[in-house]
């Protein structure tokens, strides 16, 4: 009798439990509004990271930064923040945002060459050039008519005529970087860019915009280990035309194309390019 009642109780208990869970989860769930940042959708989590980094740049409170970001409960938080900084760099986010992200990642313990380069790059005070790299028509310095000194009678009492300083049309634009480019015939064409400072030393952390058939890419010099501080490259597509520009005042634009060429041994190849840029002083 007792055993029968026990079994009957269990027979009722099990569906009761299932029904209770169903009621709690499906019929009367708690209203939304009590979520933590860890439950945010991915785009909002990224926004949260950006905001935390920006806020930290004002507050400078590492404990608060850590508390805000740890609320996301990401297992690889420093790497995620660093990856966001690198993504911002490649997608041409404002430099200030990228640097704040890089600084936050560094505070969390992330280490990568890209972070070092991002943090070493000065934030431009002007708006970065359009990523499409279409050169905007700028007013080129036009030669203004120079007023020629008319032959005026020189007073005889003047011992010697002082050398007249003739006004010359001086270009208002500062001298731009020097570009030197060499074609190379190769099977898989590569655009190799090397940036030097005015003293001829390779410079890392220079942002280069390369616009080609695949769209516009942003490169940063110095990220390829063993290739030199000023080196960056991009794979070229056969027949593709590439324009490149260097961020900074007096940005340089040059255009190269992967044209068919003859390899010394073997089938035809394509012209890759080596472009050396020496930045102006």
């Amino acid at each position: 009798m007792r055993a029968q009642q026990g079994i009957a109780f269990l027979v009722g208990l099990l569906p009761g439990l299932i029904g209770g869970l169903y009621l709690a989860w499906e019929v009367f769930p708690p209203p939304p509004g009590g979520s933590s940042p860890a439950e945010l959708a991915i785009p909002y989590q990224e926004l949260w990271i950006v905001l935390a980094a920006r806020a930290d740049a004002v507050e400078r409170d590492p404990a608060t930064l850590r508390r805000r970001l740890e609320a996301l409960a990401l297992p690889d938080l420093p790497e995620r923040v660093a990856a966001l900084a690198e993504r911002g760099l490649l997608e041409n986010w404002p430099s200030g945002v990228v640097q704040d992200l890089a600084r936050a990642a560094q505070q969390l313990g992330a280490r990568s060459p890209a972070l070092v380069v991002i943090l070493a790059t000065p934030v431009p005070t002007r708006v970065p050039p359009s990523p499409t790299l279409i050169p905007t028509p700028t007013a080129s310095p036009t030669a203004t008519p120079t007023p020629r000194p008319s032959p005026t009678p020189v007073p005889t009492w003047e011992p010697s005529p002082a050398p007249l300083e003739t006004p010359t049309a001086t270009p208002t634009r500062s001298e731009g970087p020097l570009v030197e480019q060499r074609p190379l015939c190769e099977g898989s064409p590569l655009l190799r860019i090397r940036v030097f400072d005015p003293d001829g030393k390779e410079r890392s952390g220079v942002r280069i915009w390369v616009s080609g058939p695949r769209g516009t890419e942003t490169l940063l010099t110095g990220l390829k280990p063993g290739m030199g501080d000023g080196y960056a490259d991009v794979q070229m597509e056969p027949q593709g035309t590439y324009r490149l520009g260097i961020e900074g005042p007096g940005s340089v634009l040059t255009e190269v194309a992967a044209q068919p060429c003859e390899l010394p041994h073997g089938p035809g190849g394509w012209t890759g390019w080596e472009v050396d840029v020496r930045l102006a002083r």
């Binding site: 009722g12 209770g20 709690a24």
Partner: peptide, 15 residues
Amino acid sequence: LGLLIGAGAGFLLGR
């Protein structure tokens, strides 16, 4: 009785 207790326990567990 089992159903009632089970439903109550299930609801509390689920909540």
